[in-house]
Design a protein around this nucleic acid. Sequence first.
DNA 1: AAGAGGCCCTGATAGC
DNA 2: TGCTATCAGGGCCTCT
Length: 287
Amino acid sequence: MPELPEVEIVKQSLNRNIKFQEIKKVVVRNRSLRFKIPKDFESFLINKKIDQISRKSKYLIIHLNNNTFCIIHLGMSGTIHLVRKKNSISNTNTSFYSSPNLPLKHNHFEIFLKKYRLIYNDPRRFGFVKILKNQKCLLKYFKNIGPEPLNKKFNINYISSYLINKKKNIKNFLLDQKFVSGIGNIYASEILFHCKINPFKKAKNLRKLDIKKIEHFSKLILNDAIKKGGSSIRDFKNVLGQNGNYQKEFKVYKRTNLNCLNKDCFGKIKKKIISKRSTFFCNRCQK
DNA sequence: AAGAGGCCCTGATAGC
DNA sequence: TGCTATCAGGGCCTCT
């Protein structure tokens, strides 16, 4: 569920709060995630300094000071929480994680820093962590991942040449991380609504104008979602426990049988399953 | 090569 | 009220 904008928000708040801090202690409470937390996870992180946190599509990358990396993927229900240490006082940052919201169950690991305790929580265990020992491993790890929608590589030429002769529908391609990385099920429906493209439309049947709109609205919507702090549905919050606001902008997601919000359209929003994923669209203006 | 489908997992909610 | 069934969904895997 955390898609590119939500992961971006997490990245930004981690950079604001834990950059340059040293990892003092690592405690793993439950190793079982999508992939088991590696045995040397603790020893790999301990005493390292965090240079910065970056993001590649839906992956968080923690850069450590000896040119090694720790990757975190939030899966569907993964959340990161920062708890400020009681005795740590700072004039520059007044945001506190409100402890009543701190989950008690499914906390998989904790990283102790100078001012904060970082907690990884994941009820459904679809998330995972990975340790990568050098730059080369990092590049190799992401070699099969397509361009991000926000990258200039995701342009009309790339999209049209990739989709030429492809029989699958466009919704499936927006979710295919080899084609474009970072879009998940929610933003896929939203993007196609703005493009006025039916999610069932076969990729090879898209016209030049459709391709243009896909490029344009993918960038526009993800940027807008980042600007609004991501979407909080179910349990997404930033690391300080605050909600995002983009869910208020949803035009189709979870709006089954409600009126289409496009001016001059009298259609209704329908929900249909595509590859086992709910897909929301207007039955009238998305052609 | 491309595409379809299965699997991992828990919690919220729907339905009887 | 209390049970069971269904849904939510990202990435990786296998099979055709």
